[in-house]
């Protein structure tokens, strides 16, 4: 049965500490099998970037990360020429009688090329995982650079010609939906939307990542997070915050939530003072909803 493949992938992800639901496993599996980039969207802190890290670890291969930002350009993402080295080479060639064309050919070749993440990713000996993080932060022009790479697995360098990929890397692209990505980019990728986890899933993640946590406390934390995400907050906490909180509380040897504990540690899950103030004010209500009875 070929369907074993998908089960294997799921257990590999789980063994690396990544709890994936059906949709995630399917998307990753098909992206691997059909050699397509995987575009992952979702709110911050739900484990978009984590997928790439886990995949690299599982395949025991290198993770090449390109963090996008406004103004990111080809030199920083694809390649740049090593100008100092080129100048020195030209000096050394001074005595040789070479034509301009010959010299140009010598200094514009791979030896003088500084490989930036994208070029590096396609010229490695073992297929790496390429993480293009927060692609929505880069300019729209940058997306066009990506298109050639993602559909034909090659990069054109005007001075040298086309560099073809030695091995096709596994590409994970993440986006926070700051702006809409172009249709052209979307069409080249498989698409995955990761939302805030269900309580069950979050509890599984917490138990997996913070095994020392008290069972009751784990449940309370996840129930509390679920309610907090329903509130109108400036910054909704993600799984990363849940884990931080769980770790902190476990380290403090706390076995259940009470008002005092929550008040003292709210800063771990909420990163905006307004959120902290408002949550602080509606703590009793939150406790009621989560079924936790605060000790007076």
């Amino acid at each position: 049965m070929k369907r074993e493949g998908i089960k294997d992938l799921n257990s590999v992800l789980t063994s690396q500490g990544y709890i994936a639901d059906k949709a995630i496993t399917m998307a990753v599996y098909l992206a691997q099998k059909l050699q397509r980039p995987l575009l992952v969207e979702g709110p911050p802190g739900v484990g978009k970037t984590e997928i790439a890290k886990v995949l690299a670890k599982a395949a025991d291969t290198e993770l090449i990360r390109l963090q996008c930002y406004e103004g990111l350009n080809a030199e920083q993402a694809l390649y740049e020429w090593n100008y100092q080295k080129q100048l020195l080479a030209l000096k050394m060639m001074e005595s040789e009688k070479l034509s301009v064309d010959e010299k140009e050919g010598m200094i514009f070749n791979e030896e003088y090329l500084l490989k930036r993440p994208l070029l590096k990713a396609i010229s490695m000996d073992k297929s790496p995982v390429l993480l293009i993080d927060e692609v929505d932060r880069a300019d729209e022009e940058f997306e066009s650079f990506l298109l050639e790479l993602l559909s034909d697995w090659q990069i054109s360098i005007p001075e040298m010609g086309v560099v073809k990929a030695k091995h096709i890397p596994q590409v994970i692209i993440t986006s926070n939906r700051m702006r809409d990505l172009s249709e052209a980019l979307r069409r080249r990728c498989f698409y995955l939307w990761i939302d805030y986890p269900s309580m069950d899933k979050e509890l599984k993640i917490v138990r997996r990542k913070v095994p020392e946590i008290d069972e009751k406390l784990g449940t309370q934390i996840c129930a509390f997070m679920k309610e907090i995400r329903e509130m109108k907050l400036e910054k909704i906490p993600g799984i990363a915050e849940t884990l931080d909180w769980a770790q902190a509380l476990a380290a403090l040897h706390i076995d259940h939530l009470d008002k005092e504990v929550v008040e003292d540690t709210l800063g771990i899950i909420l990163k905006d003072w307004k959120d902290i103030r408002e949550t602080g004010l509606s703590l009793s209500e939150l406790f009621e909803k989560t079924g936790v009875i605060p000790k007076v």
Binding site: Q86, L87, V100, K103, E104, I107
Partner: peptide, 10 residues
């Protein structure tokens, strides 16, 4: 600049 000045040996 480098391309332009190859002629002058860098």
């Amino acid at each position: 600049t480098i391309r332009k000045n190859i002629l002058r040996n860098g």
